[in-house]
Design a protein around this nucleic acid. Structure first.
Lengths: 228, 228
DNA sequence: GTGTGTGAACTGATTCACAGCA
DNA sequence: TGCTGTGAATCAGTTCACACAC
C-alpha cells in the first residue's frame, strides 16, 4: 500500500544522515534508469550506492513502503518517491554569486539542471565581467543583487566569492529573503537560525584526507616526538 | 603538560566528526592570527567556528591538554598542535585530474597552498588543453598520468572530470599507488578499502537544501496528496 | 574567580535479526 | 522461498555538570 500514511503525519522528519544518503540513492537510480533497468533489490541498490542493504532499507522505510517483498523496488517509481520526499518536484530557482572560475564551473554544470534546479542568475562584482555571457546567462552586477533576485524569483543561492566578502554578501542574501544558501567560501559564515546554510570546502576535505593518510603512513605506534 | 601522552598511545584515534571540526577550528585560528590575537577562550573560538564551547573542548581534548585553565588557549600554539594532529606538517603533493572550469578553479585556489598542500600536476584529456599554462602549472596529458604522478611524487589526487570517465581514472590513480582521492565527479566511485575517498557534490548539497526548504515551506501538516 | 578537561547521561545513528508479505 | 520493513540492541556522537588547575 504505497502512498498511505497516517493522516497528518505524512513522511515527516527524515533523519539528516538519511537525507544525505537519499540523494545518493537517487543518483544510483538515475544510472540504473539510464541502463534501462526497471527493478532492483535493496542489495543491488545498496552496492551501487556504496552502503549496506539494511541501512538502505532503513532509510527508505522513513519515506514509506515503496518496495515489494520478495521482489524489490521499481526503479522509476522509487526514483519519483525519493524526489517527492526531498522536495525536488518543487520549483527551485538558483542564483550563483561570484562568476570566477568556480562560479562559471557551477553555472555550466549540467548536473544541477537535470535535477530540478534552474540557474536563473549569475552575479559578479567585477565590471569587466558584468554583461558577459556564460552559457545562456548574462552576468549581472552584484550591485543589482536585490533587484535581480526578486525579478528572477530566486529561492536558493550559491556563494562562490572570496572569503573576504562572503559574510557581507551572505547578509545581503538573507536580507533579500533567501533562506537556502550553499557556500563555497573558505570562511565560517554566521546566519540566522531560519536560514539553511551548507558549506562545501575543498581544503577541509584535503585536510581530512591528510589526517587519514598520515595515520596509514605510520603503521601504529607513532613517534612521541610527533607532539611538538 | 602539553605534549605528554602515554607512550605508544600518542593522540590516536580522533573520531571522524571531530576531525572534520578540527579543520574549522584551524581556519578560525588562522583568522585570529591574522588579526594579531594571541589568546582565545573556548567560548570565543567556538563562536568563531559556529559550534558550542563544550563540543570544542571535547574535540580539543582528543589531541591533548593544550589550554591553560582559567586562561584559555594560545592561538599560535593551538594552531600548530592541530596542524600536527591532522598531519598537515607532512609533505602533501596534489595532482588535479581534469582541467575544465572546475579543475582550473581548484588549481588557482590559494587556500590549498596556504595549508601545506602543493599542487604539483594538472591533467586533461583534451589535446587542445594539454600544454596550456594554468597559473604556474603546465597541463599534462592524461595519457602520461602514471609517469607524471611518479615524477612529481604525487600522494593525493583531486578528480574533477565528467562522471562518465571518473571510475576509470579513479582506478588508474589507485593502480598508480594513490590512496587519498577527493572526487568532484557526480557518481558513486568504488575503491579498495585501503584507499581514502572523499566526495564533494554540489547537487547533493542543493538537494539537501531543497529538503529543508520544502519542510519550512509547508508549516507542519503537509497535504497527503504529496505522496504520489 | 575563571575557564579548561572529562566522566557520565543522553540523544541520534547504525546494525541486526526476524516477522510479514508477495 | 525471497526480499522488504522494522522494532530492539548496539554503537557513536553530543551535551552537561563539575572537578581541577591556574
Amino acid at each position: 500500500m504505497p502512498g498511505l500514511h497516517p493522516v497528518g503525519d505524512p513522511v515527516r522528519h527524515i533523519p539528516p544522515a538519511s537525507v544525505a544518503r537519499l540523494t545518493i540513492y537517487l543518483r544510483a537510480l538515475n544510472t540504473l534508469l539510464g541502463e534501462g533497468i526497471e527493478r532492483v533489490s535493496s542489495e543491488e541498490l545498496a552496492d551501487a550506492a556504496g552502503v549496506n542493504s539494511p541501512m538502505l532499507r532503513k532509510d527508505l522505510s522513513y519515506l514509506g513502503s515503496y518496495g515489494t517483498r520478495g521482489v524489490g523496488y521499481d526503479v522509476q517509481y522509487l526514483n519519483r518517491q525519493i524526489s517527492i520526499a526531498l522536495g525536488l518536484t518543487l520549483d527551485w530557482r538558483v542564483a550563483i554569486i561570484g562568476a570566477g572560475n568556480l562560479g562559471r564551473a557551477l553555472a555550466g554544470y549540467s548536473g544541477f539542471v537535470s535535477r530540478g534546479f534552474e540557474i536563473v542568475a549569475l552575479f559578479d562584482a567585477d565590471q569587466l565581467v558584468v554583461g558577459a555571457e556564460v552559457g545562456y546567462l548574462r552576468v549581472s552586477a552584484v550591485d543589482d543583487l536585490e533587484t535581480v533576485l526578486e525579478r528572477t524569483r530566486t529561492n536558493m543561492a550559491v556563494l562562490s566569492v572570496p572569503g573576504s566578502v562572503a559574510q557581507e554578501l551572505c547578509d545581503r542574501l538573507v536580507a533579500a529573503g533567501i533562506s537556502s544558501i550553499l557556500s563555497f567560501a573558505p570562511v565560517v559564515l554566521q546566519v540566522p537560525s531560519h536560514v539553511q546554510l551548507r558549506k562545501v570546502d575543498m581544503s577541509t576535505e584535503l585536510q581530512i584526507l591528510a589526517y587519514h593518510a598520515q595515520r596509514a603512513q605510520e603503521p601504529d605506534l607513532g613517534p612521541i616526538s610527533r607532539a611538538q
